[in-house]
Design a protein around this nucleic acid. Structure first.
Lengths: 198, 198
DNA sequence: CGTGCATCTATACAATGTTCAGATTATCTG
DNA sequence: CAGATAATCTGAACATTGTATAGATGCACG
């Protein structure tokens, strides 16, 4: 028997669930989604591998939890980028729209492993999140472009699909090395042409 | 010196390298890129797990080999779809262009696991060379649109980036369940608007 | 104070990637 | 055509992984 004195780390962690998620994010960030190990996550938190099964059914469940956290954070980054541009005219509306796309792309290239986990089929995201912040931001951004008269109402219709597809596609192809980084601004211009933006 | 034809010998396989690649493709197709097992691949071919290390440095090398095979096959499918549309007028040029995008998308939705392996960061791919069939088809398709007068020369500039980004992005988002299938035709329309296509 | 319950540990098991020594066969040399 | 040499494959081994099960631990509450 080991003499048991005052233990530094308590038996009950207190907030193990989110601690596991954060540790998983850190490990995916470093080594990629396919090299995420439940045991390494648990060890980083200072807990036995079995402990995580109290909060997540299996490894996939943890990954899915990571996915929704990351998706929310990406939306936060976009919102932050938008909020830095004030004004209500045509100029600032366009800049806000571009800032949204740039924030998305910037996150992809600075955190390719997190991006892969989020959009690479690792986490099961079943529903089309119409009320998700990311979708709301895009939708409201398009609405603003209509309101300030930069695009027509008919060009705006279903604009979300084209915009998200092009921005996501370019980000994905670029971080996988299939396209040069310099292509992204061109894609942004193409999106605006597609919307008939002046 | 050249390895000879496949004489059915229990010990020497004859064409193990490509047999491993084909078996890997079949397994990825079924179970996804992250559940590909070297041992299962070897077992399917009827060979010891160690045998594959004579042809591939490690699991990643096999996956990368699978990747370039798949990329070539995707291009073949696109070429086949294009070749089914004859004629040299504006109408057939547009149809060929659309057929290319549709073939890409169709492959993505019918083989999501292969698509994920190819574009999900599993295989280390270098920047797609200008002389790759997939790039050539896209490039020539855009050139044809200019030649028949469907788009202007200036709108065509760097059109590859926007087209590939949008088609790839839509395919990716749709197979991951983030976008409804029905959004793809809208994206195709958006691409044509972006090119100023009549 | 002690009883119940949520939380965490220990142990075990099968599967995986990978290495290495050796067995088996094909090919070449004399 | 025989024997040597190189190419190809096997077998066993090791560390690491996800996960299941049984038991230990400590908190809240009677």
């Amino acid at each position: 028997m080991v003499p048991r004195v005052a233990v530094v780390s308590p038996y009950h962690h207190g907030d193990l669930e989110s601690a596991l998620v954060e540790a998983a994010i850190a490990l995916v960030r470093k080594y990629g989604p396919d090299h995420l190990s439940l045991r390494a996550v648990s060890a980083d938190v200072g807990v036995s591998p079995s402990a995580s099964y109290h909060y997540f059914q299996d490894k996939n469940a943890l990954i899915s939890a990571v996915g929704s956290v990351l998706f929310a954070r990406l939306a936060d980054l976009q919102e932050e980028a938008i909020s830095k541009i004030s004004g209500s005219g045509m100029h600032s509306a366009r800049e806000r729209f571009q800032a949204m796309g740039n924030a998305y792309f910037k996150w992809a290239v600075t955190e390719p492993n997190l991006y892969r986990l989020l959009f690479g089929g690792f986490c099961e995201m079943q529903e089309v999140p119409q009320d998700h912040k990311a979708w709301r931001l895009l939708s409201e951004g398009l609405d603003e472009l209509v309101q300030v008269g930069l695009i027509t109402k008919s060009a705006r219709q279903n604009g979300e699909a084209l915009v998200w597809s092009a921005v996501h596609g370019a980000s994905s192809l670029i971080i996988e090395g299939l396209m040069p980084r310099q292509a992204f601004p061109e894609v942004l211009k193409g999106i605006q042409r597609s919307l008939g933006m002046k």
